[in-house]
Design a binder for these strands. Structure first.
Length: 133
RNA sequence: AGGGGGCCUGAGGCAGCCGCGUGUUCGCCCAUGCAAAUGAGCGGGCGCGAGGAAAGUCCGGGCUCCACGAAACAAGGGUGGCGGGUAACGCCCGCCGGCGCUCCUUCGGGGGCGCAAGGGAAAGUGCCACAGAGAGCAAACCGCCGAUGGCUUCCCCGAAAGGGGCGCACAGGCAAGGGUGAAAGGGUGCGGUAAGAGCGCACCGGGGCGCUGGCAACAGGGUUCGCAUGGCAAACCCCACCCGGAGCAAGGCCGAAUAGGGGCCGCGCGCCUGCCUUUCGGGCAGGUAGGGGUGUUUCGCCCUGAGCGGCCCGGGUUGGCUGCUAGAGCGCGCAGAGCAAUCUGCCGCCCAGAUGAAUGGCUGCUACCCCGGAGCCGGUCCGCAAGGAUACCGACCGGGGAUACAGAACCCGGCUUAUGAUGGCCCCCUGAUA
């Protein structure tokens, strides 16, 4: 049996199925991002980042992903939920949002997730905007 | 100096802390192994780490697989002045002809800049809207003429017949001018004529045939023809030349849960009833023997009832590895050839290989622009000097602003499109003349 020097092992989500299942987890939305958390059955702390094409072109999306990685790198070893998948979904407000501000927001979102609280149950408001205008 | 335009360059730099991808090297540890070694992980050192467009995916190639005997033809697609460059191109360079603008002119022409898909229209078909009288074997609306023929209440001559004149615009002639149009059957001028017309002449333009120069596109000049034989080929078409298709999700390899397929071996494939079928025989349904599970066994219950077990083989889904970066490579290196594109030789260099996809976070200094300040500094100005002044320039201090377009995804050569600041060069216009 290997005795790990660093107890916290952080790995990256690479399978589409992992992202889809994370969708069913706890959901905490902030101005710049949405945090999804879901227990993964003893696979350690894992994270993933999703930025859709709606956010911008490739340069904007890559920059957002790099900043999110930096946020998670700083926060997960101490504040991450053990044996959970963490998925950050980029929102339009997070493109040039102040880094320190987003770090605070991530801390608060992780705190709420640890308490098991998410945004209102169901998470799916009745869709607006489908009406004919 | 100000304004406008074009081309090129350029794509901020340095440092600190934390962090990422990859290559290499060292160390530690783990797995397999007698060992050598191999593989995985962690840590340290060192090297490298997005673009001029990485973009759009519009052309041309390399590479890979598929198809194919060679070649030709057909079909389909593409290209289209000439020469050169190139691996190749629809790209690039040079030249030729055309058109536009502008300047000069001895009015013949010449210079500069720019634009363009620039083979063939007497091989054929088709089209030419609207406007206009007429648009393709031309036509006659306004107009001009009315010589010739015709008419004439007028005038003149004449005795009359008749003749002449002024007229009319009926026949007729004309296509200069007006008008329409993208385009109206060469242009300008003179002659000519009733009016006109290549009707005649001069020059220009054009067609045919030689000549000279040029590799050629073509140019020059000669001679001849008065010269209707539009435009569109980016409508079909004809001619010449080029092209097999698909793409790194190409292609190759590895392992193999589960389900299904094939082969071999071992055991089993029995019996009864009903139905179908042309036969040897076979098929279907039900039951039963048998087999399996539960259970210590009997009994019972459930499943199965013609297959069960073992070994091997190839294919699919998902995943991993590979292809994957040293090349038509790069160099504001040098020399040579060329007007140039580019090529040749020598020298130097190694410059991303990610795959939910590596460049980020925080901070300081500096670089660009604008505003303000202080006269401690250098110009500058005042003064003989000591010294003073601060409109302007630089340096200094303080504050503010701007930092674009955009992220490799197998790799090259182009094209197109996007793009903020800084330089450099050139052109045009206006103003000035130190």
């Amino acid at each position: 049996m290997v005795a790990p020097v660093i107890p916290v092992v952080i790995s990256v989500l690479t399978k589409r199925a992992d992202f889809l299942s994370a969708n069913a987890g706890t959901r905490n939305a902030r101005a710049g991002f949405v945090l999804l958390t879901r227990p993964n059955g003893g696979k350690g702390i894992r994270f993933g980042i999703t930025v859709t094409k709606k956010i911008g072109n490739a340069v904007v999306r890559n920059r957002m992903k790099r900043r999110f990685r930096e946020l998670l790198r700083a926060a997960l070893p101490t504040q991450g939920l053990p044996d959970h998948d963490h998925v950050l979904i980029g929102r339009a407000g997070g493109v040039e949002r102040d880094f320190a501000l987003m770090a605070e927001e991530l801390t608060k979102a992780l705190d709420r997730a640890r308490e098991g609280k998410g945004d209102p149950a169901g998470g799916r408001r009745p869709r607006k905007g489908n009406r004919k205008r």
